[in-house]
Write a protein that binds this DNA or RNA. Structure first.
Lengths: 200, 200
DNA sequence: CAAATTCTGGAACGAACATTACATATCGAT
DNA sequence: ATCGATATGTAATGTTCGTTCCAGAATTTG
């Protein structure tokens, strides 16, 4: 064996994710990533290969964690479907408020990645990751909403897939709105209004 | 007098805006802006000063044009308020579909600017522009929605300001969703669902 | 304790970037 | 037709970027 790493990989990914969320992929320089993670250039490149590879790992873990939490909330079949969606949306509003309080950057890495890299063929791999995550999230939402429709608890004026796309868009809108500097109370209004759209 | 410009400034701004929308501010290189506008480096810098200044002009005209169209639609007092909001949202969905058909980049420069520059102090000036535009748009929406509430045509379960923030967030969500590659039909679903939230 | 292996810090590299300088071309006015 | 003034094309500049290299430090295994 040999000398062990002087840092915990997940902590580094966490710090790098914050940096990417704050500045985006292009504007986050290697120097800034080193400062944020506490690593030297050599350690960073030895452990992650390149800035793009580090970004991909950050994006991947971010998407996995977010999708898992969504799965947990939507999978709570004891609750009415609309309550689950309400919890999902409110959790985002709360998380954004916490970020403000902690001085951490607001917004969503997936949303910002779409905004920054959607049309860049060089990052098609990252975008494919986001697309797959979005597809999985839409599936979870549509499945839940379909159950809600069958129970008469959710409107069927729009298909379950359409409502899923709506909820997903609402989440993106919520995150962009927060990133723009909107206060927590207003985010709650957006959540309440979003939920109204689902009522029968 | 002297030699006149060999190009129309508004056309150049239009082409540059497309480039910034597609790649973002950081990833749009001077070379790419020259290619897109057909100008040489000298002409570009002589006429606009710097890449940042060009971006600011593109952003300013984009915001002005978009706000003006919003104003026109929401100011049509002959129609019910909810119809005006419906037209506003549908126009976005149609515009995004047209972009796809024309091979032009999708999404919204204002949304992407928030995603890319919200936390960068160096571009606080650009962000202030976006903030002012957002404030103006929220005012227009809230005024219209208040009228709708007074007429019993719009729900008052949420304040007019809250509903305005919701509609604004819905627009951002719609544009990000489109940028992610969602088809036009799904965008229509999102519009229909969004409108449901406003019903009394 | 020594050897093997890996990590780490700092300097250095080539490429790409935004921007500028300069010579030349082009136009309006006289 | 010529002059003044500005636009344009090309080449160059200084800087910043991502990345690599190398020497030395650290830690486990034998």
């Amino acid at each position: 064996m040999a000398r062990p790493l002087g840092f915990r990989r997940d902590r580094v990914v966490e710090a790098a994710t914050r940096t990417f969320l704050q500045h985006g992929l292009h504007a986050a320089s290697a120097e800034e990533l080193c400062r944020a993670t506490g690593l030297g250039r050599s350690s960073l490149y030895n452990s992650f290969g390149s800035k793009d590879a580090l970004f991909d790992e950050c994006l991947g873990t971010y998407l996995d964690q977010t999708l898992e939490r969504t799965e947990t909330i939507l999978g709570d079949t004891a609750r009415p479907v609309r309550d689950r969606i309400a919890i999902l949306l409110r959790r985002i509003a709360v998380e954004e408020a916490e970020r403000v309080a902690a001085g951490e950057p607001r917004g969503c890495l997936a949303v910002n990645t779409v905004a920054e890299l959607a049309d860049d063929p060089e990052y098609a791999g990252s975008m494919r990751r986001v697309d797959e995550d979005t597809a999985a999230r839409l599936r979870l939402l549509a499945d839940a909403l379909r159950v809600g429709q069958a129970a008469g608890e959710v409107t069927d004026a729009v298909s379950a897939e359409g409502l899923a796309a709506f909820v997903n868009a609402a989440i993106a809108g919520l995150r962009i709105t927060s990133q723009g500097g909107t206060a927590a109370g207003r985010l709650d209004d957006i959540v309440v209004a979003t939920l109204r759209a689902l009522a029968p």
